[in-house]
């Protein structure tokens, strides 16, 4: 028996929005510690790793480890039926091939339940080693979204150059080129608006904007986003999910032919 209730159901709605355009289907791995998901996009260019800790749910019950294969587009469709104020409960039996979602209004006057078929998905989990990155940039998530959107007008790729002075995002294409520079500003009044850079070594990497724009669908989850980079290894784009977890996107850098 698996049962997990999240009072702030809107968080789960945002989680689905953050992954459903990148992943068609994925397996939620559930154990006593919480729910997690790891999946590559269909072209195997990027990897999504998502964790929701059991402590964030009330109640959370997972009698035995289970893997729930889910069509994320279908799950997202059903979650659109939940109001932002609703609590969301996810239930799955030990033997069943279905999952049930229960949406409950804050005063309990309205309760909806939806049942969905589970899928058999073959999943190969990848080991993601703990890595010390050369540059870790934290910036407002909305700013990062804006940069990716704006530079998509110019080219297909963005080159991110990080030094101790700041971070520069550059794109070029048939119409010309564009550069956006952000200086470090850790001293702003509001913590959420800060741009901070922790740097061991400067680095310059190029990434496909198409994927970064997919990652930016997670923007409503968190006021800040963290970009972790080292030369010649995948970029990590991380959004916190409230106090209960995170979604991390890994994107392989583009390399010169």
């Amino acid at each position: 028996m698996f049962e997990a209730r999240l009072a702030q159901g809107t968080l789960l709605k945002k989680v689905l929005e953050a992954i459903k355009d990148l992943l068609n289907e994925a397996t939620w791995d559930c154990n006593e510690n919480g729910m997690s998901l790891q999946a590559m996009d269909s072209s195997h260019v990027s990897l999504v790793s998502l964790t929701l800790n059991a402590e964030g749910f009330e109640p959370y019950r997972c009698d035995r480890n289970c893997s729930l294969g889910i069509n994320l587009a279908s799950m997202s469709k059903i979650f659109k039926c939940a109001s932002n104020e609703d609590s969301i409960t996810i239930k799955a039996g030990d033997e069943g091939d279905t999952i049930t979602y229960v949406f409950e209004s804050p005063n309990g006057d309205k309760v909806s339940d939806y049942e969905m078929k589970l899928m058999d998905i073959e999943t190969d989990h990848l080991g993601i080693p703990d890595t010390t990155y050369s540059c870790v940039v934290k910036l407002p998530a909305a700013e990062f979204q804006r940069i990716c959107r704006d530079l998509s007008q110019i080219g297909e790729s963005v080159t991110i150059c990080c030094t101790k002075d700041g971070v520069r995002f550059s794109a070029s294409g048939d119409l010309g080129s564009g550069n956006i520079k952000l200086a470090q500003n850790a001293n702003v009044d509001k913590e959420d608006e800060a741009v901070t850079i922790e740097m061991q070594e400067a680095c310059t990497l190029t990434f496909a904007l198409r994927y970064l724009n997919f990652f930016c669908k997670a923007t409503p989850l968190s006021p800040q986003v963290t970009l972790s980079m080292s030369n010649e290894v995948p970029l990590v784009v991380e959004y916190k999910i409230g106090e209960m977890g995170h979604v991390r996107y890994y994107l392989a850098p583009k390399i010169e032919d």
Partner: peptide, 14 residues
């Protein structure tokens, strides 16, 4: 021109 590597080439299967 630049090429896109697969993400799985960076991580080992578990």
């Amino acid at each position: 021109m630049s090429a896109q590597k697969s993400i799985s080439s960076f991580f080992q299967p578990l």
